[in-house]
Design a protein around this nucleic acid. Structure first.
Length: 278
DNA sequence: CGATCTACCTGATGGC
DNA sequence: TGCCATCAGGTAGATC
């Protein structure tokens, strides 16, 4: 569920509300979420008593620094949520990890589908333990680049635009929703080849990436009908109200009024406008 | 090496 | 009302 804008929204909230807090106790239910640890105890021992000193985002990963120097790495998968709550608030279903602070409530990790995970690791082991993180591509929000550099990245491979945008080893943080929104913003079809773009189209695509992601962050990310993505306070985002194509099958294109089309790409849904995207 | 599919899970939704 | 199939923001691993 959560892509770069949703994870960035959470990062900013964690920075305000969790950094500086000390963990008193940790409860873990089941091993799936912390599967990289051999047992619950080895995870709990590394977190209990620790204070969070910083939080950063790498693509769709969150990395919290503990005052032991170790890192708590979190990936939300499809349905993961991080929620601040008072100790007495009713515990939601599928709360797999609950951290109680010495003061001011809890941080809860809730994840019905259990595709997400978290683990603690030393900074110098991070790349061994998480090759995905080591191979992560550029962050389009944190590390702006020139459109000519972007153009070289595009031309140097031969793949469809949507696959390029969603490849975490090339650009980190873009998933199924934002790739569609970016391609609409750029006026390009999802199945155009990376090496077929004119320089004007390259510029439009790069602008689409940066502007779409910034806009989505501004509105706190996208929450779809199932309400799965919510922020640290359980509040939905608002960017879905600004979607041009995603989840808008058969609705009129906001630009040309032609109905939005839903197609399959790599066995996933893709939405686009046949008139505005070429 | 790169491109494509399937598995991992639970829950919501729609057709019959 | 119930049953079954389908679909859902992500990624890794198998298979070609």
């Amino acid at each position: 569920m959560p892509e770069l804008p949703e994870v960035e929204t959470l990062r900013r909230e964690l920075d305000k509300e969790v950094v500086g807090k000390r963990v008193k106790t940790v409860e873990v239910t089941g091993m799936k979420t912390i599967h990289r640890h051999t047992n619950r105890k080895s995870f709990i021992e590394k977190v209990e008593g620790q204070k969070f000193t910083a939080v950063e985002r790498r693509g769709k990963y969150l990395v919290l620094t503990l005052d032991s120097g170790e890192l708590l790495v979190i990936h939300l998968g499809m349905s993961g949520q991080l929620l601040r709550a008072a100790n007495k608030d009713p515990m939601p279903k599928h709360a797999h990890v609950v951290m109680t602070f010495t003061q001011h409530g809890q941080l809860r990790y809730v994840d019905p589908r259990k595709f997400g995970e978290m683990f603690v690791t030393a900074p110098d082991e991070l790349t061994n333990e998480v090759p995905e993180l080591a191979e992560l591509g550029v962050d389009p929000v944190e590390e702006p680049m020139s459109w000519t550099t972007f153009g070289e990245m595009l031309v140097s491979r031969k793949m469809k635009l949507k696959a390029f945008l969603m490849d975490q080893k090339i650009i980190a943080g873009i998933g199924n929703i934002y790739s569609d929104e970016i391609l609409f913003a750029a006026g390009l079809r999802y199945d155009r080849m990376t090496d077929s773009l004119s320089s004007q189209e390259i510029r439009r695509l790069y602008r689409g990436v940066v502007e779409t992601l910034h806009d989505a962050i501004k509105y706190g990310g996208s929450t779809l009908g199932d309400g799965q993505y919510v922020d640290l306070h359980g509040e939905p985002g608002e960017y879905q109200e600004h979607h041009q194509v995603y989840d808008r099958e058969k609705l009129a294109c906001r630009r040309c009024r032609v109905p939005i089309v839903k197609a399959k790409f790599q066995s996933r849904s893709t939405y686009f406008c046949e008139q505005c995207q070429v």
